[in-house]
Amino acid sequence: MSVIFLSEDDVRQLVNMSDAVKVTEQAFQHLAEGEAFNQSRGRLRTNDVMLHALAGVDRKANQLGWKMYTTTRNAARFLVGIYDGTSGTLEALIEADYLGQLRTGAASGVATKYLSRQDSQTLGLIGTGLQARTQAWAIAEVRHLKQILVYGRNAERREAFAKQLAEDLSIEVIPCKSVEQVVEPADVIVTATISKSPVFEGKWLKAGTHINSAGSNFLKKTELDLETLKKAEIVTCDSRDQCHLEAGDFVEALSQGILSWENIAELSDVATGKVSRESAEQITLFKSVGLGIQDVALGSLVVERARDRKMGIELPF
Score class of each variant (00 low, 15 high):
Gly56Ser: 10
Leu64Ser: 10
Arg73Cys: 03
Asp84Ala: 09
Thr89Gln: 14
Arg77Trp: 11
Lys67Ala: 05
Asn74Cys: 02
Asp84Phe: 03
Val80Asn: 04
Lys60Tyr: 09
Phe78Lys: 02
Lys60Pro: 03
Tyr83His: 13
Arg59Trp: 02
Gly85Cys: 09
Arg77Pro: 00
Ala61His: 03
Asn74Phe: 02
Ile82Met: 07
Thr72Asn: 10
Arg59Glu: 12
Trp66Pro: 00
Ala61Gly: 05
Thr70Ile: 14
Thr72Phe: 02
Tyr83Glu: 11
Asn62Val: 11
Gly56Ile: 01
Arg77Asp: 11
Gly56Lys: 11
Thr89Arg: 15
Gly85Ser: 10
Ala75Gly: 03
Asn62Glu: 14
Lys60Cys: 06
Ala75Lys: 11
Met68Cys: 08
Ile82Arg: 04
Gly56His: 10
Trp66Thr: 14
Gly56Glu: 09
Val80Ala: 12
Leu54Val: 07
Gly56Leu: 09
Phe78Cys: 06
Gln63Met: 13
Val80Lys: 01
Gln63Glu: 13
Thr86Trp: 05
Ile82His: 02
Gln63Gly: 05
Gly65Ser: 07
Lys60Gln: 15
Val80Thr: 12
Ala55Lys: 04
Ala76Arg: 12
Gly81Phe: 02
Phe78Trp: 10
Gly65Phe: 09
Arg77Ala: 10
Gly88Asp: 06
Arg59Met: 14
Val57Lys: 14
Ala55Ile: 01
Gly65Asp: 07
Thr89Asp: 13
Ala61Thr: 01
Arg73Pro: 01
Tyr83Trp: 12
Leu54Asn: 05
